[in-house]
């Protein structure tokens, strides 16, 4: 049921036009951060206002929306955002990655490969990949325009000199179509390979920092690395204790006060799907859907 007190998908039409124009320019220049006049939303900056605005500008009544935070559909902020769009846009919602036409995410890319027609909307806190190397917007804008990314390579190389490897484990910088260095949002670097060549359209919204950027489908996205230190997508060296998956990103859960640990899929829909298909991990139990 849509809340009649607000416009469809909450934002007024002029605001949506402004955001839509920014999205189109973002698509035309993959990886380039398009400034947009982010609006104050009824949730705080840092809670996904950029992603919410991008989703609001994209939604149609026929959409089926999935919202995840840390890979899970039932984290409180994911629940809150999903409810917001149920109320203001009246769209159908789902937890199943395969059934969703629009997926808004914070910090993860679903494990299931996305398909054509799907849109993945990322919530982005700091869109500027060079920000922690150079805090000034006036300077970083110049660096992007001149394609001057030496500073980033120096930083990564210093990591190698000090630690023997690149000590960036999330928000790992990427280069899009050989041109713009882009922050993929704070996804674990485990997810970086999924950015490249995806069949889905990927949109990034940073509300507080007023930036929108995009990776169109089938676009090359390369994680920065060195020939002698190639990029490695890392994860905990365990299998999921519930579904037994060997290739999914894992949450570590402390289960007792003696320091006992278990590892479970961060992507809750992926894990449930596997359990329903009869896969059982070390500590799992057969579910009703199991064979």
């Amino acid at each position: 049921m849509t809340d009649q007190a607000y416009n469809f998908a909450y934002l007024d039409e002029q605001t949506k036009r402004m955001i839509r124009r920014a999205i189109l320019k973002g698509i035309a220049v993959p990886g380039y951060q398009v400034p947009f006049a982010s609006r104050e939303m009824p949730m705080p900056y840092g809670w996904g206002t950029g992603g919410v605005q991008v989703t609001a500008a994209c939604l149609v009544p026929e959409d089926c929306l999935k919202v995840i935070d840390q890979g899970a559909d039932d984290t409180t902020n994911a629940v809150s955002i999903r409810k917001f769009f149920q109320r203001t846009a009246g769209v159908a919602v789902t937890e199943a990655t395969a059934d969703a036409s629009v997926i808004q995410t914070r910090h993860r890319i679903p494990e299931l490969p996305l398909r054509e027609g799907q849109i993945l909307v990322y919530q982005v806190p700091i869109p500027e990949p060079l920000r922690f190397l150079e805090p000034r917007e006036t300077e970083t804008r110049k660096m992007h325009s001149l394609e001057e990314y030496g500073l980033m390579h120096v930083k990564l190389y210093e990591d190698i000199a000090r630690h023997g490897q690149i000590a960036t484990s999330y928000a790992y910088p990427v280069k899009v179509e050989g041109r713009y260095v882009m922050d993929p949002s704070p996804i674990p670097k485990f997810d970086n390979p999924k950015l490249s060549g995806s069949a889905a359209l990927q949109l990034f919204g940073a509300g507080r920092e007023q930036r929108i950027y995009a990776v169109p489908p089938y676009t090359s996205v390369v994680s920065l690395d060195f020939e002698d230190h190639p990029f490695v997508a890392g994860k905990a060296p365990h299998d999921c204790d519930l579904c037994g998956a060997t290739d999914s990103y894992l949450d570590e859960v402390i289960v007792d006060d003696a320091g006992g640990r278990m590892f479970v899929c961060s992507d809750t829909d992926f894990c449930r799907g596997r359990k329903d298909a009869g896969h059982i991990g070390r500590l799992g139990v057969q579910t009703d859907g199991g064979a």
Partner: peptide
């Protein structure tokens, strides 16, 4: 409003990123 939002958002779940850092520190 921008400042308090970004400041307070660090209380939201970050366990995916923290897990990545945990693994990195363990490996190092």
């Amino acid at each position: 409003i921008q400042a308090t939002g970004f400041l307070e958002h660090i209380k939201l779940p970050h366990y995916v990123d923290f897990q990545a850092e945990l693994e990195l520190v363990r490996r190092l």
